[in-house]
Amino acid sequence: MNINFEQIMTVTMILFAVIDILGSVPIIVGLRSKVGHIQSEKASLVAAAIMISFLFVGEFILQLIGIDVNSFAVAGAFVLLFLALEMILGISIYKDEEPKTASIVPLAFPLIAGPGIMTSILSLKAEYDTINIVIGILINILFVYIVLKSSDKIEKVLGQGGLGVIRKVFGVVLLAIAVKLFASNVKGLFV
């Protein structure tokens, strides 16, 4: 086990930007107003289980279908690029139907542990130690739980403008991460 504080911080920030739980507060508040109670504990635990499971079996699944980690990391860089553009420009490239209930399905997947996070986890695995990624996931899940529990208060404190600014800042961070991920893995495609 090679626990590295710098790797943990980097992984945590990357996953935080991709999950974008603060940017999702308006969606969470909307779900809560439509269906009442949101099961914060259950949603957080299921999202953690999805992310950690994918960290360990995702590479096996890729090998099964004949894709190497570098190719997946480059593809992940493109997904992160589009997510970043959505956050920065305030547009929606990926369209999803509006959920009817606030059960595990809209919250744990795809809102918290969606396709972007899956791609990011496997891309991170190409560069960072697994233990540091697991710790980064757990830190993010703790933060997700806190945000789910106090989404109404967060929205009142930050307002729509504050949430918008946070979303754009993390969009720029995510864009830089996508460029770095692409640059560090594209060489591996031609070896």
Rank of each mutant, 00 (worst) to 15 (best):
Y145A: 04
L64H: 14
L81A: 10
L22S: 01
Q39K: 12
A73H: 06
I166T: 13
N140G: 03
V11N: 11
I8P: 07
I131E: 07
F182E: 08
L81H: 04
I131R: 05
L83E: 10
S103K: 06
E59K: 12
M1R: 08
L158G: 04
N132S: 09
R32M: 02
R167S: 02
A84K: 06
I28N: 02
T130L: 13
I139D: 10
K156Y: 01
V147D: 07
V25R: 02
S151H: 14
N132M: 06
L15W: 12
D96N: 11
I14A: 14
A73G: 06
V179N: 09
V147F: 09
I93M: 08
I139T: 10
T101W: 10
V57A: 15
A73Y: 04
V134D: 12
P106G: 01
V157I: 15
S53I: 14
I104S: 00
A108H: 01
A43D: 08
F143G: 10
T101V: 12
I61W: 05
Q63N: 15
N70G: 14
V179E: 09
V46Q: 00
G36A: 03
I131G: 01
I67P: 01
L22P: 00
F5D: 08
K180W: 14
S103Q: 07
G23N: 03
T10Q: 13
T101F: 12
V147E: 07
V35L: 00
V191R: 15
T12Y: 13
A102Q: 02
L111K: 00
V144F: 02
S44C: 09
L124Q: 13
S33Y: 04
A75V: 11
V157A: 10
E97L: 04
K95M: 04
V144Q: 02
D96T: 07
K187M: 10
A47T: 03
I131N: 09
V46D: 01
I21D: 00
T119M: 15
Y128G: 12
S53C: 14
L45K: 11
M87L: 08
I28P: 03
I135F: 08
I67W: 03
I166N: 08
V105A: 12
F78V: 11
Y94T: 15
R167F: 00
A73F: 08
S150E: 11
E127F: 15
I166F: 15
I137C: 11
F170K: 00
L174Y: 06
S92W: 05
I146C: 08
I52K: 14
F78L: 09
K95D: 02
I38Y: 02
E98C: 04
F72A: 06
V191F: 15
K168D: 02
V165Y: 13
I121C: 12
R32D: 03
D96G: 06
G66S: 10
I166C: 11
K95P: 01
G188A: 10
L22F: 12
M9G: 11
